[in-house]
């Protein structure tokens, strides 16, 4: 007799993903799909893909999906949730999408305590357009538009979105996780599951920031990219829970 110890989550489509080798977007997709499956909610979940490397997420999740314009996924998710309040609605957004062009939308969705789950993938640069500076790019970090390294005098300072949004009353749960090791992946999965569960319970806005690699634009091999994440991103973007179930709509 064979025992299945691991299999593709039902909420993840059986297709080839377009991500670069070593990119951790794929791992995060799997965790989101597992969280939906854990609630047996594939048939009542609607996802919102944003603009960035994960734009094709509408092909990767085996649930109903909408594709949103750059930065506006929280507004699109709001529209969906207000029509279908008993469905689970999530967005999947990069850091350029969420923290730069979509800064207003995420702040106000959080402030309203909109009962949605936001998966915020922070890879400290604009992956899709070729590695430009993002609002999350670290000081000194070289990108194609900060060729000498990000200089606060001209380029300003990086934004800690999880901490900033946690100052609002609306959110029910905000956490930052990473996917650089099996243990980190397990913790990330637990946080994402918790966020979806809180949404199902009607607790309000939940956001999980996931530190993620971009080996291609960081110019690093996949294993070096994981090491760079641990040594550079985590010290500035500490992992942890920043808001726990107080607010919520």
């Amino acid at each position: 007799m064979t025992t299945v110890v691991a299999q593709r989550p039902k909420s993840l489509s059986d297709v080839v993903m377009n991500y670069c080798p070593g990119c951790t977007h794929g791992i995060i997709h799997r965790l989101v799909a597992e969280a939906i499956d854990a609630l047996d909610a594939r048939e009542r979940t609607i996802g919102v893909a944003s603009v960035g490397c994960s734009v094709f997420a509408y092909n990767y999740f085996e649930c109903d999906m909408q594709q949103a314009s750059h930065g506006r996924a929280p507004a699109v998710a709001t529209g969906i949730k207000r029509v279908l309040p008993d469905r689970l609605v999530f967005t999947y957004q990069g850091d350029g999408d969420l923290a730069s062009i979509g800064a207003a939308e995420i702040v106000h969705a959080a402030a309203r305590g909109e009962n949605i789950t936001v998966i915020f993938v922070n890879n400290a640069n604009y992956g899709m357009t070729g590695g430009q500076m993002a609002p999350t790019t670290l000081l000194g970090q070289k990108t194609t538009t900060t060729p000498l390294g990000r200089d606060p005098k001209t380029d300003g300072f990086p934004i800690r979105m999880a901490e900033m949004l946690a100052t609002l009353q609306g959110p029910a749960y905000i956490a930052r996780v990473s996917v650089h090791s099996p243990q980190a992946v397990k913790q990330a999965g637990d946080a994402i599951k918790k966020a979806f569960r809180l949404q199902a319970e009607g607790k309000g806005f939940t956001l999980i920031e996931v530190l993620s690699t971009c080996p291609t634009n960081w110019g690093l091999a996949p294993n070096q990219a994981l090491k760079w994440l641990v040594e550079n991103l985590i010290p500035f973007y500490p992992l942890g829970e920043f808001k726990k179930e107080e607010g919520g709509a």
Binding site: I46, V48, Q66, A68, S69, R72, A75, V76, A77, T78, G79, I80, K81, R82, V83, L84, A104, E105, V107, H108
Partner: peptide, 24 residues
């Protein structure tokens, strides 16, 4: 029904997009 004052017209039209896509 639902009335929602959006944070901007940019947001409002994208809420319309989500709601229309959800069949409202």
């Amino acid at each position: 029904g639902v009335y929602l004052q959006a944070e901007s017209e940019v947001s409002a039209i994208n809420m319309v997009y989500g709601a229309a896509g959800a069949g409202g």
